[in-house]
Amino acid sequence: MKRHRSSLAMTIAVSVLMAGSMPATAQSDMGFDVDITLSKNAAAKLAAKKEGIIVFASYYGDPKRNAKKHVNEVGQISLGRQDEQVEVPGTGGHAQISGAKIDRKRLDWLAGPVKVNVNVASARRSSSDNLLACDFIDGPLSDVQKGPVTLHCALIEEHYDTELKPKG
């Protein structure tokens, strides 16, 4: 019996480790975390205008041969009808993207990994124009899920050189 328990414990431990290394689609977990930071000028202007920040996430992927009839205008499979939007205070902070707007039936149309595109903009409460230039995400969801990705924002007039994140 002692040997059986040891073997069972080993099997459970290996199963837990393997589950952690499975792709996001196998785990049915499409969420990830983003942290928004601001330049001093952007923080001051957003505070003065009582402006917020919106994080937009859209999921997509490359089509299987038999799914080409479902591609969007850029030849990819959109996994949702609209972007997931999360509001963050104008001071910056943490955004948790859930992946709840994904149409899971469309996952069968993909050849390859689920990808995600994330953009950040001002909430447009004080102006109809976006005030921010921000880093962005565009790539495999599995890369983004490795940990919170920090996206930095500055005012557009600061001419901030935005970066693709995370860096591989």
Results as ranks from 00 to 15, higher is better:
L107M: 11
I36G: 12
F32P: 09
P89T: 10
P63C: 13
G93F: 02
H4Y: 03
D29M: 02
S6G: 12
Y60M: 14
I12T: 09
V34I: 15
S122V: 07
A111C: 05
D138N: 15
W109A: 13
Y160Q: 08
T25P: 03
A95T: 08
V116F: 06
T25Y: 03
S21I: 08
I137T: 09
C153R: 03
H152K: 09
E73W: 00
Y60L: 15
P63N: 09
H70N: 14
V14K: 02
V88Y: 01
R124E: 13
V14Q: 03
G147L: 08
P23Q: 08
G20S: 08
K101N: 15
G147S: 14
G80C: 14
L8I: 12
V74H: 04
S28I: 05
G93N: 06
A111N: 11
L79I: 11
V14A: 14
A44R: 07
G93T: 06
L46A: 13
K105T: 12
I53N: 10
L110N: 01
S21A: 15
N130K: 05
E84T: 13
L79H: 04
H152E: 08
G147T: 07
M1I: 06
A154P: 02
S128A: 14
V114P: 07
S126I: 08
M30R: 06
D161G: 01
I36S: 09
P23T: 13
V144M: 11
I77P: 09
M10C: 08
V144K: 00
L17D: 05
H94F: 04
V118I: 12
G139I: 11
K2A: 14
H70Y: 10
K49I: 04
K64Y: 01
E87Y: 00
G75W: 02
M18E: 04
T162P: 05
A19V: 07
N72Q: 07
I156Y: 00
H94Y: 01
S127D: 15
E158K: 05
V34N: 09
A123T: 05
H159Q: 12
K146N: 12
Q82P: 03
S122K: 03
I102T: 10
T91E: 12
S21P: 00
